[in-house]
């Protein structure tokens, strides 16, 4: 079973992420925990929900959390894809999920997810990270500990430093 970082530790991961093409070709798996793209979710919401396993949605850059706002209470996990780590839209999406929609499920970074971005990702609300397959996940774990001080509030502690003193 592949491993991910979740809540600060390395754990086995039960979720399978499929692309729209894979689902079109193979159909929906009857069971198992499944991460589907937003357009698939929007088109087949009820069929997907009727499966035996749990379901999550993956947002691509340009697909905002508002698109799944009404579904959040039945989604145990929202994945946010980083096709390239330099595209920072996902940071605002994660923050929005946590602060605007008060989402308490798992928010997982997938795609081009690397050690040197983890500290910021964690601060904006990601609690799970699927590290890029060619990288050492143990090493990546260190990225969560880059700093012990922050100026701004964040999702984990909304108070900026001037309200913490």
């Amino acid at each position: 079973m592949p491993a991910i970082i979740k809540d600060g530790t390395i754990v086995d991961d039960s979720w399978q992420r499929l692309t729209a093409e894979q689902i079109e070709q193979q159909g929906l798996p009857a069971e198992g925990d499944l991460i589907v793209p937003l357009p698939v979710w929007q088109a087949q919401r009820d069929a997907i929900a009727a499966r035996a396993g749990r379901t999550a949605v993956c947002l691509e850059p340009g697909e905002e959390p508002s698109e799944i706002a009404a579904d959040l209470d039945r989604l145990p996990l929202v994945a946010i894809d980083f096709p390239a780590f330099k595209d920072g839209r996902g940071y605002s999406y994660a923050r929005e999920l946590r602060t605007r929609y008060q989402y308490t499920g798992e928010v997982r970074a997938v795609g081009d997810v690397l050690r040197d971005q983890l500290f910021y990702m964690h601060r904006v609300g990601f609690n799970a990270f699927q590290i890029r397959a060619d990288r050492d996940i143990e090493d990546a774990l260190n990225g969560l500990k880059d700093f012990s001080v922050t100026y701004q509030g964040d999702v984990n502690d909304p108070r900026p430093i001037y309200r913490r003193r």
Partner: peptide, 14 residues
Amino acid sequence: RQWATFNPEFAYLP
């Protein structure tokens, strides 16, 4: 400056 320094949401702007 302090708000902008390592602001986690705005490190990968366009």
